[in-house]
Amino acid sequence: MTDTTVLELVSPSALLKSEPVEMVVVPGTDGNFGVLPKHSPMISTIRPGVIDIYAGGKVSERIFVAGGVAEVNPERCTILAEEAVPVADLKADEAQARLEQATADLKAASTAHDKANAERALDIARAQIAALTN
């Protein structure tokens, strides 16, 4: 039995995952970081991207998150995600539609607030497409 750390993936509407994993790679705002057991405590924001869960040295599960924040301590890794979908459930056409919608919104945005929202949506859509293509 190798060492494990508890991965908790929480979305606003449910506790999606709470299970021991060997390693998890999180898309932090300042770059991806891997979390192994006994990781030093840290808090990081997350950019839209894919969380890779490793088991037996291989990626066992890939989950897309649309941004959020991660808290890591020696025993666990808690990820608060706004939206989390397994990559396998992502649809290319939906992501494409989202991208077009976000682009249109960005063009139509008049206030700084709307613009920021649209830009965020655009980032999410781009990350979804990127997640699907590799």
């Binding site: 300042d30 030093s40 840290m42 808090i43 990081s44 924001t45 301590n73 020696p74």
Partner: peptide, 15 residues
Amino acid sequence: AVYDYEPSEEAILAD
């Protein structure tokens, strides 16, 4: 424990 913050505390808080 003492936490590391990435990017900074302020940036995370602002988010």
